[in-house]
Amino acid sequence: MGDLTVSIHNLKLKNPVLTASGTFGYGLEYDDFMDVSLLGGIVVKGTTIHPRQGNDYPRMAETASGMLNSVGLQNKGAKYFATDIYPNLLKYDTNILVNVSGSTIEEYIACAEIINELDHIPGIELNISCPNVKEGGMAFGTSCASIEAVVSAVRKVYHKTMVVKLSPNVTDIGELARSAEASGADSLSLINTLMAMAIDAERRKPILSTITGGLSGPAVKPIALRQVWEVAKSVKVPIIGMGGIMNATDAIEFFLAGASAIQVGTANYLDPMITLKIIDGIDDYLNRHKFSSINDIIGGLQV
């Protein structure tokens, strides 16, 4: 058994496999299928200060090797999370991160302040990259100025590990990554979903109620790898890579590109136990290639 432990700022992960926000609920939905505590960490659903209904149905379209969603951050709000959901998560022996989102900087701050009070939440993932909300969301993640504004504002009130989740819907991700790092991010995660659309030719209508949505799944992996690679060259903070990871080989590719940990998203829908298989597969890869630690392959791409 190789050493699978990695560090993301102050977080010690027993293995580098986390689950992506919006694809793992609060973990509780997986209790029937697996022991959630075996994971390196989980990132729970996108959380906002005020409850959000999200967008209208239909919110999903299957596409070639992936899917579009336009859920739009449906959640019951940070206070509900703190009082009604958080107590149920104390049973897990893993790192639980809350994905924090908002329409204004004030909303991000208010949400982060509530999460900051929760002892067993060692970090947040600041979502400045949601393509499915009219205000805020991705708008914060697409210019250096707005990234600086929101990240540094949350940094002032949030004192634990702050991961900033980047949008792939940008021209120069390296530059935006440097802004997030300079504004106080302890780690960067990427990618969120890619803005995309699907059309029903027979009905001559968009499939999603919102017309456009976010693409995820194996279709996005090559883009995600390229962006992780660019960000890894641009910043010093550790990177959490994601986008289309379906198996251990996909995960290894992200480590080689420079990610210190990975998140599994859409793949959880197809196989709720996939994360455990990926952990085993990573270990198997290390053994086959005679690496004693996962840290030996991070950024290990030979070019």
Binding site: T23, F24, E29, G54, R59, M60, V71, N268, P272
Partner: peptide
């Protein structure tokens, strides 16, 4: 998309 309450697409 999922069938068990995690994607909120349905």
């Amino acid at each position: 998309a999922c069938g068990f309450g995690v994607c909120l697409c349905c």
